[in-house]
Design a protein around this nucleic acid. Structure first.
Length: 780
DNA sequence: TTAGGGTTAG
């Protein structure tokens, strides 16, 4: 094979690299020349350069030789000294010209630089790798390592599989830490477990580096127990082992254990380093343990730790999470160096406390408007029940030139759309994701699926679910939650079984959703059994939300005594939500005695609960105890109980219209009320009389004084839906409290008489009205 | 000939 042919072959991958220059890359060969004449047009340099000039630029850049004869011994030094990808590409071009690329050692150095240095460029790394005739283990490991830290860690495993096939050497002690790194980023437990087995078979299970990366893998994959088993059994530990284990506990939601481990580390005279302190602070922040946090801050001060940006950021975060915004502010002002994390932590701290003015001041003072800063602001509004402001900020961000929406921005925007029931905007984001070729990872897919489900399109939610290749526990849980909302309990249970068959370990969220599914579908035995299995079978200690679900399951099914005795036996103190569930059940099934017990307990915990008052008042009214009704209402008027504004919203052509009870502020108000009159006329022949005529029955939405004049917000929204949407379109409504019985009956009749699908999401679930029936089968 | 593990915000 002649030199030209060799070089041509070597140039093959370089053809793709030319595209990254943003210009042309051309090569030609002369019949009698031993070298190719190559010209590259760089986007940064308007005139084409010969390789000689490139080499010269490179030489100048690294203050090396004169002219284009770069000494071959200097090439390795030049590679090491490169500070940007352009310089590396110049050296690459030079190596191709001077045939230095044929030397496997030099080529592997170039590969390393492309794969893992600060000038990394993995497409080039792979191309260089492909040009090395028989890459040795070092080269394979380097490529695996490069991809392990990339945006696509799966590639590490594909390369590893290829290596097992093609490389004559076995994976060694360097291979596994890189693979565990990739596995920890993918958070796929069984993948790492298989690797763990390979480590044992390869007799590498006492290697400190491998074991430390294994602890980190189990910790990142939600298995702190397995991480701890490795930690306990390892023959020798260094500070990295302790740090990895502290972090595994903190990540696994066990900050207490993380802090205990730090104390144990102290007792065993293992000297902590900066990373230990960062991990411990992170655990304090997660535990909201200000006392320990402050102690750590003084420990840092007294133990000779020099100022360190990440450590300062971790302290800031601890103060913010523990609610000490002033301490955070003092530290922030003292910090000699600040980065995006410092600014965002402060911004987020203020925004989460609802100090929006302060948050905006920080945003304005930022040296650069990072995407993360926009995200912090948008997410604060979204999470504090201000989805409209969140979406308007999202629009503002799109108009700004400084930052582009990223995955986190889109997740926040999807959550805001879900809150509003703004399906058109949510769908727009879906299109945006596709158009910009944004990777639909599990987090984004979960938000998208959730948005479709909450906006009343279960089929589309299911479509997104099926489109996710590697579903994590959150994707599965969200789909189970979506089915629960639609009352499809059996389907939710089937999906839960499929999830277990796919070896996905359920978490606390999965159980909240599956119990909720049992609740909405009246599956009492199934729900009870799942709850009992949570800890012994799945290792999940039931939390308060699970207890609420079970009380609701029993209560809704009329098993009031069983619900009450379940509360009595709870190992954790019942919260207002637990008593609220019992009170709701008493209201539905008319048990005055238990209702009073639930009401008293609830009021002790939440003295200003308007919903509790309404429920008890209705229970008394149903039982005909007018004196108690009257006393309760007087008490209510005299107290400071304030209602949040209950409302219903409807998305019409991308605009969300909101209605309050008895609202007449909408521009189409007159038409809306005329439509309601028309509906009443239509309903007369079939004998429908609104429950509103019974002044003693209240719903949460009613105003005491002007009750007879009020029309519930969902009726207004339904009427508006009928006049403003095509007859073929479903009417999608979101309500921020539970639908009342009268409106439920009203919606059923409208769906029948106007032949319309109505999808109404209340605080707890979906009601799909069609042909006079509701998907909840009147069980809600 | 070459190398590796643990850290902060949204």
């Amino acid at each position: 094979m002649g030199l030209v042919t060799v070089l041509q072959l070597q140039l093959q991958p370089s053809l793709s690299f030319s595209l990254d220059f943003g210009g042309r890359f051309s090569c030609s060969s002369t019949s009698n020349s031993t070298l190719l004449r190559v010209s590259v047009k760089c986007s940064a340099l308007s005139t084409p350069l010969s390789l000689g000039q490139i080499a010269m630029n490179c030489t100048e850049a690294v203050k090396g030789e004169k002219g284009n004869e770069v000494e071959s011994t200097n090439i390795l030094e030049f590679i090491d000294q490169c500070t940007n990808t352009m310089q590396l590409k110049q050296i690459h071009a030079h190596m191709l010209r001077t045939s230095r690329f044929c030397d496997p050692y030099t080529a592997s150095k170039l590969l390393t630089a492309y794969a893992i240095s600060s000038c990394s460029c993995l497409i080039y790394a792979k191309n260089v790798f492909n040009q090395i005739p028989q890459p040795n283990l070092y080269c394979w490991n380097t490529l695996i390592r490069g991809y392990a830290s990339s945006s696509d860690p799966t590639q590490s495993f594909l390369i590893f599989l290829h290596m097992l096939h093609s490389c004559s050497e076995f994976p060694n002690k360097f291979t596994f830490p890189f693979l565990f790194k990739a596995a920890s980023r993918l958070k796929v437990l069984h993948l790492g477990s298989v690797l763990h087995g390979m480590v044992i078979k390869a007799s590498l299970s006492s290697d400190l580096f491998i074991l430390n990366s294994l602890i980190n893998f189990y910790g990142s994959s939600g298995a702190p127990d397995l991480a701890h088993r490795v930690f306990t059994n390892m023959p020798g530990k260094d500070v990295v082992s302790w740090n990895a284990m502290i972090n595994a506990f903190a990540l696994g939601g066990l900050p207490d254990k993380a802090l205990l481990l730090f104390q144990e580390m102290e007792m065993k005279d293992v000297k902590p380093n900066v990373i230990t302190m960062v991990s411990v602070l992170s655990a304090c922040a997660k535990k909201i343990d200000l006392e320990f946090g402050r102690w750590i801050c003084s420990y840092i001060e007294n133990n000779g730790f020099t100022e360190h940006l990440i450590l300062n950021n971790a302290m800031l975060d601890m103060y913010v999470k523990c609610g000490c915004i002033n301490d955070a502010k003092d530290l922030f002002n003292k910090m000699s160096e600040k980065d995006i994390v410092s600014w965002t932590t402060m911004l987020d701290g203020h925004a989460k406390l609802g100090n929006y003015d302060e948050a905006h001041c920080i945003f304005d003072a930022m040296p650069h408007k990072w995407t993360a800063a926009w995200n912090a602001l948008i997410s604060a509004y979204e999470q504090n029940g201000k989805p409209r402001v969140a979406l308007s900020l999202f629009h503002e961000m799109q108009l700004s030139k400084d930052a582009k929406p990223d995955e986190v921005t889109l997740i926040c925007a999807l959550c805001a759309s879900a809150q509003l029931g703004a399906i058109d905007f949510g769908h727009w984001i879906h299109v945006y994701i596709k158009k910009h070729d944004i990777n639909l990872n599990c987090h984004l897919a979960t938000s998208l699926l959730d948005m479709y489900a909450k906006c009343g399109n279960l089929n589309k939610a299911m479509e997104v679910f099926h489109a996710v290749e590697r579903k994590d526990v959150y994707v599965w849980s969200a789909m189970i939650g979506a089915l629960a909302m639609y009352g499809q309990g059996k389907a939710a249970l089937d999906l839960f079984s499929s999830m277990l068959e796919a070896y996905i370990k359920p978490n606390a969220v999965t159980f909240t959703n599956i119990l909720c599914a049992c609740n909405h579908a009246g599956l009492v035995n199934e729900g009870e059994q799942l709850f009992e299995q949570m800890e012994p079978l799945y290792g999940i200690v039931p939390q308060i939300q699970h207890y609420v679900c079970v009380v609701d399951i029993f209560g809704r099914a009329g098993l009031l005594e069983k619900a009450a005795s379940f509360i009595e036996k709870m190992p954790i103190p019942p919260t207002a939500a637990v008593w609220g569930a019992l009170l709701g059940a008493c209201s539905r099934h008319g048990n005055v005695e238990l209702a009073e017990l639930a009401y008293q307990n609830l009021l002790e915990l939440e003295p200003c609960n308007h919903g509790a008052f309404v429920l008890l008042s209705n229970i008394y009214a149903k039982a005909g105890d007018w004196e108690k009704v009257s006393n309760l209402r007087k008490l209510m008027r005299d107290s400071d109980v304030k209602k949040e504004p209950w409302c219903s919203s409807i998305d019409v052509n991308g605009i969300v219209h909101e209605f309050l009870v008895g609202d007449n502020s909408h521009p189409f108000s007159q038409k809306i009320y005329s439509k309601l009159d028309e509906i009443s006329e239509k309903f007369k022949p079939i004998g429908y009389k609104p429950d509103m005529s019974n002044l003693l029955q209240l719903s949460e939405e009613d105003n005491l004084m002007e009750q007879s004049l009020n029309v519930h917000s969902e009726k207004l929204a339904i009427a508006f839906g009928l006049i403003s949407t095509a007859s073929s379109q479903p009417i999608r409504i979101v309500k921020n409290i539970r639908i009342c019985g009268d409106c439920h009956a009203f919606a059923k009749l409208v769906s029948q008489l106007y032949d319309r699908d109505i999808l109404l999401r209340d605080r707890y679930r979906f009601h799909h009205f069609r042909g006079g029936k509701c998907s909840c089968l009147d069980y809600w």
